[in-house]
Nucleic acid binder design. Structure first.
Lengths: 159, 159
DNA sequence: TATTGTTATACTCTATAACTATA
DNA sequence: TATAGTTATAGAGTATAACAATA
């Protein structure tokens, strides 16, 4: 790349491309930021051998002991068939337990094991650290403004 | 579901699950909002038979006439092999043109056709409408706060 | 030897249909 | 008959290796 060439040569687009249209779209910026956060989050969760989706499932089971797989799938907005492998993975690792309900032997009651409780607490701590790192410099007031904006988007999307 | 049962029965998790831990994470809310926006955006682009990724490519080619496929792939953060099908689709529809560079016959110079220019303008207008709808009620000051927060995340992720 | 665009391929995520066992 | 969980499968989206043409 001949960066010394000073003239506006007929050679097209030698310089960095322009994002003028895309940069005006908040949705574009939001998606970029989300991608960045998720890739940082994936790194944060790697030591725990958790992916974002298994982390979410583990947290929801801990916060809602006895949850069924259907309820968990609905809460995570994941199709039931896809949740099976997630729950399988957590169970195989001994992080959660699947117990049949005596009152309805079709459904499982999901709970975290002692190991799952421990790993969940550690992982949540690490994720809070990752967020603190990425949001370092954001005031509490600004943080609330961002949260309010995100809530507004949800309300506007519903109608 | 016997919602009339008033006692705290041993039946687990009959009520709506708790999101207390996840809701404290800004990344979780950000991802949810982004998902919502993207699904609304997909609907907005459907009449133009554009997906988010083909829309992005079309806009970048219009804003940067003569861009090469490698440059476009880098700008979009997409692997070169995956960009081929995107560019194929736009070319087949007559929205862009691929012209060999006389100075380097390996590379294509990408430009929008007249039809591509027209569709791009319409689609950008529709996307701006979609954003205005979703962000209705957000003040200019709040919007700038959100943009500043997203820029902060990018800076913090770099270091 | 390096680069542009391409093909083939694999891996992850997600979505749907159909099965089983229970109710 | 309806529901919980499961299996199989298909479709996106994304990533890597290797090739032909050109530099």
């Amino acid at each position: 790349m001949n960066r010394a060439t000073p003239l506006s040569a007929p050679e097209p687009a030698a310089q960095a491309p322009s994002f003028t249209t895309l940069r005006r779209l908040l949705g574009y910026r939001l998606r970029r930021a989300t991608t960045l956060i998720q890739s940082d989050l994936a790194e944060t969760l790697k030591p725990f051998e958790l992916r974002m989706i298994t982390f979410t499932a583990l947290v929801l089971i801990r916060d809602n002991p006895g949850l069924s797989q259907s309820q968990l799938a609905a809460a995570m907005d994941v199709e039931r068939p896809n949740l099976v492998v997630i729950v399988d993975e957590l169970e195989t690792r001994g992080l959660i337990a699947r117990d049949r309900l005596p009152t309805d032997r079709r459904t499982y009651a999901l709970t975290v094991t002692e190991a799952g409780e421990g790993l969940c607490a550690e992982a949540v701590g690490a994720v809070e650290g990752h967020e603190a790192r990425l949001l370092d410099g954001l005031s509490e007031a600004d943080r609330r403004t961002v949260e309010a904006a995100l809530a507004l988007i949800h309300r506007n999307a519903k109608g």
